[in-house]
């Protein structure tokens, strides 16, 4: 179980800063948090507690996304330890279901109905199936992901874990922790694993 350290410390940072030697950058990150607290308001499902960092976010924020190797290792192990696997132990589902999830970018914004299912947001940032030409480039291309890596148990586990919690391999990865935050359920992540690894998926054709 990952400890969700809601860093109250960050919110009271001005007091800490006063006791520390002057550090311009530190001053401004503390000031930035003050402004977020003062000038943001809840709307729809986007409650104000979303502004508070969890332990991992706090360390990434304070190290410019570049924690020390020891710290990174510890964070990654901590994130890894909370990954939940599907009850039946199988990690590959139906790639067609995975494609539908990959297409949907909805969920978690203040205009999204919290009662509706959340999408995988995959095409927002990644090239995946060659049939979809409207894809983002924030993340690497996943075209031929499985063709290049095979479908070994190890690769399946890596792919599943990466989608469940990308921070379990790279502490300050830009990629959201879809399983960790409950955006996607294990059953849905299985479908995305299939989209990337199944030899029948258009990704690997």
């Amino acid at each position: 179980m990952t400890k969700k350290i809601i860093l109250l410390a960050a919110m009271t940072a001005p007091f800490m800063i006063a006791a520390q030697p002057a550090n311009a950058e530190g001053d401004y990150s503390a000031k930035a948090i003050e402004v977020f607290k003062k000038d943001f308001q809840p709307r729809g499902q986007a409650s104000i507690d979303r502004l508070a960092e969890d332990g991992l976010q706090a360390i990434c924020n304070r190290t410019g996304n570049n924690p020390s190797p020891q710290s990174a290792k510890q964070l990654e192990a901590d994130q890894m330890s909370s990954i939940k696997h599907p009850a039946d132990g199988k990690l590959m589902g139906d790639w067609k279901e995975g494609e539908k999830l990959a297409q949907s970018g909805r969920g978690f914004t203040w205009t999204d109905d919290p009662g509706l299912p959340v999408g995988g947001n995959c095409y927002n940032c990644h090239q995946i199936s060659p049939k979809e030409t409207s894809y983002g480039t924030i993340g690497p291309s996943l075209y031929q992901f499985g063709k290049l890596r095979g479908t070994s148990e190890e690769i399946q586990k890596y792919t599943y874990n990466k989608i469940f919690n990308a921070k379990s391999y790279n502490a300050c990865s830009e990629m959201p922790r879809f399983g960790h935050v409950g955006a996607l359920k294990p059953e849905q992540i299985k479908h995305l694993v299939a989209l990337l690894l199944d030899p029948e998926s258009p990704v690997n054709k």
Partner: peptide
Amino acid sequence: KAMAAYRAGPYD
């Protein structure tokens, strides 16, 4: 500039 770098929320 510091606000632009601040990661938080469900998607980090």
